[in-house]
Simulated assay, not measured.
Amino acid sequence: MIELGEFLPPRPEASWKLIRQVGVDNVVGGLNGAEQDQRMFPSVGAGGWRPDDREDVPWSERALKRNIEIYDEYGFRLVATEDTAPLDKARLGLEGRDAQIDQVIEQIRAMGRLGIPTLAYNWMALSSWGRTDIAIPARGGALVTGYRKADTDALPRLVDEGEVTHEQMWDALAYFLDAVVPEAEAAGVRLAMHPDDPPQPFDRNLPRIMSSVAAFRRLAALHPSAANGITFCQGNFALMPEVLDGTTAIPDLIREFGTEKIPFVHFRDVKGTPAEFQETFHDEGQTDMPACMEAYYEIGFGGVMRPDHVPTLDGETNSRPGYETLGRLFAIGYIRGLEHAWYGHPAKRSVRVA
């Protein structure tokens, strides 16, 4: 069966009870002290998660153990961590990267000892997932986030043109994987690379290398191992060139990568292209979501799946664009319904073995 979860930083809030009440007991956690910052919304300046005041090194075993204890108090089980020690020097291949890689290895070893099986990470240096609008009116007046590349033209550049190359970042990724994948294998932890968001060749002069299906095939070939996996974020894969031009479809990619490469799924959807798109409710985007769930069933997927980037509904403040509560509850119900349709009633289901 699917391990349906939600992303919850380790700071209890009122929404936790609601999420438990609708049947979710798995958590994809952040690190303590993590804070949703302006890098995500460079043109609109939105903020988000409040920082933690604990003094533990966030990626240490002691800090992760305390996170587990906090989740456990509310009936949640930590099944993945979607946050890492700092990585920008490693992503860019700069001096000091070995120290950053050692910190990630410390985190992986701690996760292995604590039984946290999945570590999601990304290769977006100097920024995070980017949006240029956080309040686009959608169905019934709900608010969604969106992106227009043209709106980033007046923003400060991340690097000078030509200062960083795509191959420099690929070389840095290969160096990282060679150091980290053996540690993940030994710890029983699966790495899960998240696509660039948006999936585009450059962000303000800085190359982006995880922006196509071809890039993820190259990732798999760099260090063949079940520990070298993918965060299969459907919203980003839906914007990749091979999907937009009809060469392939999301369900076909799920079957291609299979459980060997997919330990973790962001089940979400969008409308548009990398140059201009917006988030959607799960039932009105451009992807055949029931067909995706059918594909997960066919490959025998039983890993972690969570909704992501949901609309803000009436009465909510939109202080956390994409992560308010009511849209999450809608998404959880939608995903659970599709899961039951394909995997069967929990009392009777059996996951097909690929």
Score class of each variant (00 low, 15 high):
residue 271 K to Y: 03
residue 293 M to S: 00
residue 307 P to W: 04
residue 48 G to Q: 09
residue 216 F to Y: 15
residue 293 M to F: 06
residue 110 A to Q: 02
residue 57 V to S: 07
residue 288 D to A: 04
residue 280 T to G: 09
residue 247 T to Y: 00
residue 33 G to A: 08
residue 179 A to L: 09
residue 214 A to W: 09
residue 214 A to N: 12
residue 114 L to F: 02
residue 326 L to D: 13
residue 78 L to Q: 15
residue 205 N to E: 10
residue 190 R to D: 04
residue 258 G to A: 02
residue 239 L to T: 04
residue 222 L to A: 14
residue 297 Y to A: 11
residue 278 Q to G: 09
residue 349 R to E: 09
residue 284 E to K: 01
residue 311 P to W: 01
residue 187 A to R: 07
residue 43 S to L: 09
residue 275 A to R: 13
residue 99 A to S: 15
residue 323 Y to S: 14
residue 220 A to W: 05
residue 20 R to S: 13
residue 114 L to H: 03
residue 69 E to S: 14
residue 115 G to Q: 13
residue 237 F to W: 13
residue 108 I to A: 10
residue 104 V to K: 02
residue 187 A to H: 05
residue 51 P to L: 01
residue 38 Q to K: 06
residue 298 E to H: 03
residue 49 W to C: 03
residue 254 I to P: 05
residue 268 R to N: 10
residue 201 P to A: 02
residue 351 V to I: 14
residue 49 W to Y: 12
residue 74 Y to Q: 12
residue 78 L to T: 15
residue 157 R to P: 06
residue 279 E to L: 05
residue 222 L to K: 06
residue 160 D to Y: 05
residue 22 V to C: 10
residue 75 G to R: 09
residue 51 P to G: 06
residue 84 T to H: 07
residue 88 D to Q: 05
residue 3 E to L: 12
residue 102 D to S: 14
residue 106 E to K: 11
residue 5 G to H: 03
residue 15 S to T: 04
residue 340 H to W: 07
residue 261 K to A: 15
residue 341 A to S: 12
residue 116 I to T: 07
residue 50 R to H: 10
residue 243 V to W: 03
residue 226 A to E: 14
residue 228 N to G: 11
residue 277 F to E: 01
residue 155 L to H: 02
residue 12 P to Y: 08
residue 165 T to E: 08
residue 2 I to Q: 04
residue 336 R to C: 00
residue 328 R to F: 08
